[in-house]
Design a protein around this nucleic acid. Structure first.
Length: 555
RNA sequence: GCGCCUGUAGCUCAGUAGGAUAGAGCAAUUGCCUUCUAAGCAAUGGGCCAGGGGUUCGAAUCCCUUCAGGCGCACCA
């Protein structure tokens, strides 16, 4: 809004710019909002920044809206234009937040555009690890964020249930099954899956079938072992995710893509376009035509498909299903895969800017200051489920969302546990619970805030004005987070807001001291402060909901 | 060797499309509970933003380069 005013003012000087920088100054005395446009313009206009700033201020002051919003506009330093908000404007916004929160919280960026967020998509061959947890936290938060910003979002999990990996799981379970009966006829494959869960599945099968499958060849019983195992695994994955408050709208099976002929269809499509050729007994996709560094095999010389074959088809189909934009969340170790997938959709005539791949970097663990070695082969690793048992889902989720996805995350288990009393997530939740508790007290005393004529201008303490400013900033933070696809901005905002509430709570009383005489004056102040608290609660609740962290009524 | 990501306080990390004097939490020290939840508050210390060049009114942020760490470079997924 303010940006538009500035742009208009700039235009009145006869220059056009694409956007005006608007910032929140860090220091007191520099206003509530500021812009450095005068400085960036000085080169173009060949005029001193201060002169430009003066001209802009003049233009701005001539608008009536400016007069109602701002106390004053001043020029400071080399040419910063600083805006000081009128407190009446603050009260007006606060009133809107309190009385019409939907309207206040509404941010319309998506206009119903269809977006798919595909995330986790872990192979159903083992439990979810911490990297998956990070991806899950990000994906779910991003989906919440975009939904709240007006996009039609679908969350999808892609199941790699075809191919070598699930078959290898089946073989590993087959081997474990033999061991249960002290048979060594079927040793564990070289690169097989170890770990307790393989045994657990084997026992399941042994319960159903007894030893009747012992003297069979794997090829005869592969369906039993492979299918049962990965489905069981998938169930566990779903349970873990659900314990982590992560749900999906759709689970897309890779097998289904093969069985329904979708994969074949996509390959035919690309063949017609001339991007498929045969060489050395294999079938290749001409990825180099679209910027990838080499062409890629999609059908191996032994006739089997590569993972990439179904992936091509999967991604092409996403866009055929009508999504305007698709967001994939991948582990950073897959980054080399991006050019070929983008190449595939480009070959199908889809603008590749409609596919966004967000990479989450690796998660490493620290216990007692020492890195925890994780070896999948030896079956030694801390799973997402272990982590939740150890530090709780909320804490895990909050910590994942307190880091930028593209920085490596070092998870110090001792710190996360030892900190548990002073954990950032509790700090925010505590603010929420505290406010709730105030309202319980207020109810006991029969204090109402529903009457319409509450005088918000009683909120005139510096702390109160600061909190109101922070509150009315939320839609902007939210919008920027959605635009940048960075939920972690919400996390930081919530910590800052809570960091304003707790000191305020400590310094001032919301309710008057019990036993003192209640006058009209004290009652009105109490009511005004209750409205402030209610508004803080609303914003914390909205923010935590985006993050997928619970907002406890009591702690 | 090539490509991608990262390097900010003792530790874990923010830093909003280049802006004003660099931010938070943890850890450390000292205070504050007969009053709305002490999972809280107040106060103190802590920095050549990895190094070096450049771009400009202005750089943690953009470009080049060096160093360090991580991850990729299959007819594996």
């Amino acid at each position: 809004m303010i940006e538009k005013f500035i742009l208009d003012a700039v235009e009145s000087l006869g220059v056009k710019v694409d956007y005006a920088e608007v910032e929140i100054p860090k220091r007191a005395g520099q206003g509530d909002i500021s812009t450095p446009v005068a400085m960036s313009l000085s080169g173009k206009l060949k005029t001193q920044p201060r002169k430009i700033a003066e001209a802009l201020t003049l233009a701005l002051n001539s608008r009536p809206e400016i007069k109602t919003m701002f106390e004053k506009i001043e020029i400071l330093g080399p040419g910063f234009i600083n805006f000081h908000l009128k407190s009446s404007f603050l009260y007006e916004r606060l009133n809107m937040l309190y009385n019409n929160r939907e309207e206040f919280l509404r941010v319309e960026l998506g206009f119903g555009k269809k977006v798919q967020v595909e995330f986790v998509s872990a192979n159903p061959t083992g439990p979810l690890h911490l990297g998956h947890g990070r991806g899950a936290a990000l994906g779910a938060a991003l989906a919440n964020l975009l939904t709240a910003a007006g996009y039609a979002v679908e969350k999808e999990f892609y199941i790699n249930d075809a191919g070598r990996q699930v078959s290898l799981l089946g073989k590993s379970v087959f081997s474990a099954y033999h061991l249960l009966f002290n048979s060594e006829k079927y040793p564990m494959p070289e690169d097989g899956y170890r770990g307790d869960y393989v045994e657990v599945i084997a026992k399941d099968i042994a319960e159903t079938y007894g030893d009747s499958l012992l003297n069979r060849d794997f090829s005869e019983v592969s369906t039993i072992f492979t299918d049962y195992s990965y489905k069981k695994m998938l169930k566990w994955i779903e349970d873990d995710l659900s314990a982590f408050s992560v749900t999906f709208d759709r689970w897309q099976s890779e097998r289904e893509l093969f069985d329904s002929g979708t994969v074949r269809g996509s390959i035919d499509l690309l063949r017609q376009q001339g991007y498929i050729y045969d060489e050395d007994g294999a079938v290749w996709f001409r990825a180099t035509a679209f910027g990838d560094e080499k062409d890629r095999v999609i059908i191996k010389s032994d006739g089997s498909y590569t993972y990439f074959a179904s992936d091509i088809s999967y991604h092409i189909r996403k866009f055929q299903r009508g999504f305007d934009e698709c967001i994939n969340i991948w582990g950073a170790d897959h980054h080399g895969y991006i050019p070929r997938v983008k190449a595939a959709i480009k070959a199908a005539g889809v603008d590749d800017s409609r596919l966004t791949v967000l990479l989450v970097q690796m998660v490493s663990l620290l216990r007692g200051g020492v890195p925890v070695q994780m070896s999948k082969r030896a079956g030694e690793f801390i799973t997402l489920s272990d982590l939740m048992d150890e530090i709780g889902a909320d804490t895990a989720r909050f910590i994942f969302l307190t880091r930028r996805p593209d920085s490596q995350l070092e998870f110090d288990l001792d710190a996360a546990k030892a900190q548990s009393a002073e954990n950032p997530v509790f700090y925010v939740q505590y603010a929420y619970a505290r406010i709730n508790s105030i309202f319980n007290k207020a109810n006991e005393r029969g204090i109402q805030t529903k009457s319409m004529d509450i005088n918000l201008s009683l909120l005139d303490k510096p702390e109160e004005l600061q909190i109101i400013k922070k509150l009315i900033l939320y839609p902007l933070i939210f919008e920027n987070a959605a635009r940048a696809r960075e939920p972690h901005r919400i996390t930081f905002y919530l910590q800052e807001l809570s960091g304003m509430f707790h000191p305020y709570y400590n310094k001032y009383r919301i309710l008057s001291v019990e036993g003192t005489e209640e006058t009209t004056e004290t009652l009105m102040l109490t009511q005004a402060r209750l409205i402030l608290c209610e508004s803080i609660k609303t914003i914390i609740e909205a923010g935590l909901k985006i993050l997928g962290v619970t907002a406890p009524e009591r702690m």
